[in-house]
Structure formats: C-alpha cells, structure tokens
Design a protein around this nucleic acid. Sequence first.
RNA 1: GGACGGGUGGGUGAGUGGCUAAAACCAGCAGACUGUAAAUCUGCCGCUCCUUGCGGGCUACGGAGGUUCGAAUCCUCCCCCGUCCA
Length: 334
Amino acid sequence: MSTAPHPIPTPADDSRKPGPGPVPLVAIVGPTASGKTSLGVRLARKFGGEVLACDSTQVYRGFDIGTAKPTLEERGGIPHHLIDLVDPAFAFTAGEYRVRAVAVLEDLRRRARLPILTVGTGLYLRALLEGLADAPARSEELRARLESCADAHSLQYLHRVLQRLDREAALRIGSRDRPKLIRAIEVCLLTGRSLSEIHQAGRTPLEGYHPIKIGLQPPRAALYDRIGQRVHTMIRRGWLNEVNGLIRGGVEQNTKPFNFIGYSELRAHLEGTVTLAAATKAISQATRRYAKRQITWFRKEPLVHWLPGFGDDPAIAAAAEQFVAGKLQAGAST
RNA sequence: GGACGGGUGGGUGAGUGGCUAAAACCAGCAGACUGUAAAUCUGCCGCUCCUUGCGGGCUACGGAGGUUCGAAUCCUCCCCCGUCCA
C-alpha cells in the first residue's frame, strides 16, 4: 500500500460544511501508451463510472489518431468527457481545463456516477485538484508584444526585465526558458504584482472530492517498445490521411495542435521533406522523451498507488479494481 | 592484383605531437515546471577510489611494435571497410 488514507470527515467537519460529503474520484496517471484508456473503461464498467480525459491534446477536434484519442470502439459505450472541446486555432490552457472539468464533475455528482480521469497531462491534474494561483489568463496582445521584444533583443534581455519585476521568479526561471519568462512578465504587467507574490498567496484546491490515484508504471524497456509499435499502428490506421485532411481543411501549420508530437513530422513527410521511415523514427523518439518527462512529473504526484505494468494487463487491471473497491468501501462506511 | 580514402567513446563525427577522458550533435539517464505543458528549461553522461576536489588511480581513439620527456595525432608491419583502376 503506497498511499495514505484520505482524511475521513469528522462530524465536526460535517456540521461546519453542510451538504453532501466528499465524493470519490479516480485518477489514473501514467506515461503515454501505458494503457490508461483501457483501464479507465474497465473501471468505469465495474464501478458505474464515466471517463474524463485529462490530456492537453485530446481536447482538440480533428486531431484524433496522433493524440491517441480513444475510438468509439475503445470507449466501449462508456461516456468520455473533455475530449473534442475546441478547434485547432484555440489556445487551450490548464485554467480552461479546470473550469470545464469542474463542470463535468458536478454533473457526474448529480447523476451519482464515479468520475474516472485518465491523466496524461500532469499539469492539468494538478490544476484541477490543487487549483491554480489567482493569476490572470494569458493576454494575446501582451504576449505578442513580449514575443517581438524577445525577437528584437534576446531572451537574456527578457530575463533582465523579469529580474527588475520579480527577482525571485527570475532566479527560478532559466534565462533561456522563453515560455516561462514570458508568462512571468505577462502576469506582472497585467496585475502590477509579481508572480511570486501571487503564488505565495496560494491556490484554491478542489473541494468535495477525495481522489483515488492509481499509477501505471510498466518497465521502461517494455514501454519504449510499445511506443514504437503504437506509432506504426497509428500510421496503419490512417494517421497520414488525418494530417492530410487537416492541411487541406486549412488548419494552419503554426496552430498549437500541429506542434504536438507527430503532426509536424508527418506534415514534413507529406511535403516530401523526409521519408516516412525517418518521420516514424523521429516520432517514436519524441514520444519516448515525452513519456520520460511524464514519468518524472508523476513520480512526484502525492498519494499514488503504483502498479508495475500496463493498464490492459489483466493482472494489473484486476489489482486496480481491487484497490479501487477497497477505497470505495472505506469511503462509504463513514 | 593496383591507386587512393578511411577505421575515434552507445551512434554520427571533430580533432594531426603536450592546453585531450578527447569538440559538437544525437541517443540515454536524472531533474525542474502554478494558465502553450505532447510545450519549455537544467544537470549528468569511460571505469573506479576517497578526505567530493578546477582531487587520485586505471582503461580508451582497429591490432602489434617503434620514435619521443610526452602520441588518437609521427614511423613500420598486420587486419578490416569504402571508392576507383585492372
């Protein structure tokens, strides 16, 4: 047992907070290709749940195969939420995700269904569960100015600007980390307060849910192997056609989802710049690096019950079911 | 058979006598990350020892010898690869 029990509300708590008590929420974390989708559907079937994707890429309409969006068949009749929310030109963010996810959670609560999150994007899970600081959303105009400022001068220049605005953030953020520099400066200029100050003020965590977190941790070599296979499968399923359709449909090359792993590589192949073999190799490699970053992030995630294999491995799935059943029972008996 | 070109650390590849455990890039590993996060950034990356230091030892540039205070770098022979000529 790698998780500590969740705090059980005492009568005193209940009297202070009238209304329905905390409700369980299952989150399956793990790197790409670890079998989260399959496990999510299985748990949903078993426990009367619905799946919520927690993935920054699956929210984009039209980007299906490359983002490993579950097919209708894979969904097995289980409702899936937080998929296909926006068009490619839209810059979807963690803040936006939180708002949408909370709405879905409330809906499931009303209908007494168990939410099951399949989490590929650690930041989004954190934004949902722990909240984000009270910082403003991105401002496209301001960012455009900061971007051109970075181009005109240098990233070092932006870093010096940040030093003046927010010494602490400047120490934390590398002088070559463009997106983070820009966000920190953006927040300072928008609010007149420093990002560090805003962070210190704290976050507002999600209330009324107690998370049951399961982590999938297949052996590294097996995971890398499966990633390679999956890239081929995706191509066999028509990923190239998908990319072709997006291009012909007028989706701009510089939109956010076109920079997801695979899309730019396949676009290059369609334009004749690289062979399919080279593109495939590059995609597998990028996916492996991505999986590694996810693993690094999830290692720090608190209170995760780790299982040493793929989510579609029957033994692992059975262990997950057992764990969730135990947690649900413990929660129900209070 | 002859003429060239080449064999460098997991890969590509720089390096022509000391500043070289050997550039750079890739792969790999580890880490960071509060509104672009499938993004972005950072560190490590021959082995080993300790008093963890711009520290010591060992091994390393196809192989074996040699020249030299000192060689991945020069010489000799051998092996292998590529291109061309027969």
